[in-house]
């Protein structure tokens, strides 16, 4: 029972992290390792700046 609850809470936490973009850098590193092996990925700060800049270049929010 406690184990099940633990699993549910962990899954919920993963969803919250993914929805908010909190795990974005980890996802970027995983993608980078798979798609461009052998090259250096961006540092955390540079990655976040690029990601924010790109996110707000188009229509992102509605009335």
């Amino acid at each position: 029972m406690a184990k099940r609850l633990n699993n549910v809470l962990r899954a919920l936490w993963r969803v919250i992290r993914e929805l908010s973009g909190d795990d974005g850098y980890e996802r970027y590193l995983a993608h980078h390792a798979a798609a461009h092996p052998g090259t250096r990925p961006l540092e955390r700060e540079a990655w976040f700046a690029r990601q924010q800049q790109q996110k707000w270049a188009g229509v992102k929010r509605c009335c």
């Binding site: 919250i16 908010s20 973009g21 909190d22 974005g24 850098y25 955390r44 700060e45 976040f48 700046a49």
Partner: peptide
């Protein structure tokens, strides 16, 4: 906070 102090820590900052 999200950009300089703890880059990318969206949930903490929020």
């Amino acid at each position: 906070y999200m950009h300089k102090l703890r880059p990318g820590q969206v949930l903490e900052g929020s």
